[in-house]
């Protein structure tokens, strides 16, 4: 249930401006209202996007928490990679890593394939 609670907190922060304001003022006051483990609470308190990702927080929830903290898109993606490096593979959920070369390399590879096809 605990991952559920972590996601619930982040979901509420994204939906409820008043809760968001309270959270930004005093993280612990808001964290008290949710049943998180020490590790989860620490990750939220420290804005540890990488650990939250590894704990299994759904990316569609996590990306809004990152945006709320003013983290740019590219940095958000990197923080998740760093999290896996530091804390090991994603422990739960459907937002695990699949192995990927990155946008630029992938874009190039797709174009090359298309060009080859056009020629062939």
């Amino acid at each position: 249930m605990s991952l559920y609670e972590t996601q619930k907190l982040l979901y509420h922060l994204n939906r409820e401006p008043k809760l968001k304001a309270s959270f930004l003022e005093d993280h612990d006051a808001v964290l008290q209202e949710y049943s998180l483990t020490e590790e989860e609470a620490g990750a939220v308190r420290d804005h540890d996007i990488g650990l939250l990702y590894v704990l299994g927080v759904n990316g569609q929830i996590l990306m809004h928490f990152a945006a709320m903290l003013g983290i740019a898109w590219g940095d958000y993606l990197q923080l998740m990679r760093d999290g896996v490096e530091r804390h090991g593979p994603v422990r739960a959920g459907v937002y695990k890593l699949s192995g990927y070369e990155g946008v630029d390399a992938h874009d190039r590879a797709l174009r090359e394939k298309r060009n080859q096809k056009a020629k062939g």
């Binding site: 990316g59 990306m63 937002y95 990927y100 992938h106």
Partner: peptide
């Protein structure tokens, strides 16, 4: 697609 993960941008064309 693999949105909102480090694999964001991967596409299985």
């Amino acid at each position: 697609h693999w949105p909102a993960t480090p694999d964001s941008g991967k596409i299985n064309e």
